[in-house]
Design a protein around this nucleic acid. Structure first.
Length: 356
DNA sequence: AAGGCGGGGGC
DNA sequence: GCCCCAGCCTT
């Protein structure tokens, strides 16, 4: 179809020069900015990530500033963006590069990929954009664009698919300007070759697109259907010590969602429970061993359903009063310093007691 | 090879 | 509701 890769390059480059967005990390190409933007944009739309990019470069102008911060501070800045392992790995990698490499990023795909949080895609993006290494990126956009233009129905989220699309992208890449090629094909996927209702009649690849020719645009790319979401039932115990103007927060450790973020003491149940059932629950009883609880009233009768891509968390907040306090207590005025999931942030911001 | 990991936007 | 987003890591 493209006997000469140059044809593909020229069509793509012409489109890109006309339609590319002015994104802040494109203004001055530095590995730190590119790395930061690429981590933020993993599984995240540009519009959603942009405010976070500005917050991070403002608070941490250099990688040394990021390395000097605490993980908790970084998580707080990341709060609301999701996939929090990105923030933890970002911080860990900043510390490695600052302390072991004098702030200098590795300059090759192979070396970049060894760093925490940098996989095949991100290593290719940094190596090509910053160091002109001809290594092709394959993200969701590239899967979509290539599967359609070349009419490839291989499952994209399979080992075979990853291999096939990487090889094709690597074959197509413009070695003279790999960074621009990579950004252009992604931008084309993000702005023109959309998942739903792409504007095929006005597409610069219309005469070259196999999927358009065969009417398969809507069927490509082919993905594995995802499994049904897990339903969970969270009961948060919001302790109020009015004598000390303090409540309790706990950090989530171990596996699962929201690692290292904070939340109120949690009692997870296998269904929605009444107050009587909660009082008899082992998780609640062990919580009460640690401090005297003087009352338990339900804050929201109607459970809040917090929807993650893979879990639906039915949540009810229970207000409890106590006269105890201890070193784990958090003063109302300091509660906003802690990184918390959006579910908790929403409650805090609407709960009258915590309003200053 | 498969599953877990957030939150938001578009339709 | 469903799909997708400049993916990565663990098991």
């Amino acid at each position: 179809m493209f006997d000469k890769r140059e044809i593909f390059h020229n069509i793509l480059r012409t489109w890109y020069l006309k339609h590319k967005r002015d994104l802040p990390w494109r203004e001055q190409v530095s590995p730190y900015y590119i790395w930061l933007s690429e981590i933020i944009l993993q599984q995240t739309r540009v519009d959603q990530g942009l405010p976070y990019y500005f917050k991070f470069i403002s608070k941490y102008p250099t990688i040394f500033d990021l390395a000097d911060a605490s993980e908790e501070e970084v998580l707080k800045l990341w709060q609301g963006l999701g996939y929090y392992s990105r923030a933890r790995n970002l911080h860990a990698t900043a510390r490695i590069i600052a302390s072991e490499r004098n702030g200098q990023f590795p300059e090759t795909y192979a070396e970049l990929k060894k760093l925490k949080g940098i996989g095949d895609y991100t290593a290719s993006a940094i190596a090509s954009i910053c160091f002109n290494e001809p290594t092709a990126v394959v993200d969701g956009n590239v899967y979509r664009v290539l599967s359609r233009i070349f009419g490839i129905s291989t499952l994209v989220n399979s080992t075979a698919g990853a291999k096939e699309f990487k090889a094709l992208a690597q074959h197509l890449i413009d070695s003279d300007d790999p960074g621009t090629f990579n950004q252009a094909i992604m931008e084309f996927g993000a702005r023109h070759c959309l998942p739903q209702n792409p504007d095929c009649p006005n597409c610069v690849f219309a005469t070259n697109c196999e999927a358009l020719r065969t009417g398969a645009v809507g069927k490509l790319p082919v993905k594995l259907s995802k499994k049904p979401v897990r339903k969970r039932f969270f009961n948060y115990i919001v302790m109020l010590s009015e004598a000390h103007n303090s409540t309790w927060l706990r950090q989530r450790n171990g596996k699962g969602i929201w690692q290292h973020l904070y939340e109120f003491p949690l009692v997870e149940t296998d269904k929605e429970v009444s107050a009587a059932e909660l009082l008899e629950h082992e998780g609640y009883k062990s919580l009460c061993k640690k401090l005297s609880v003087e009352g338990l009233t339900l804050y929201n009768e109607e459970a809040i359903v917090h929807k993650l891509s893979h879990q639906h968390i039915n949540t009810r907040f229970w207000i409890a009063r106590t006269s105890d306090t201890d070193e784990k207590a958090v003063r109302y005025s300091e509660i906003t310093n802690y990184p918390v999931p959006v579910l908790i942030e929403n409650f805090i911001s609407e709960f009258p007691v915590f309003k200053n």
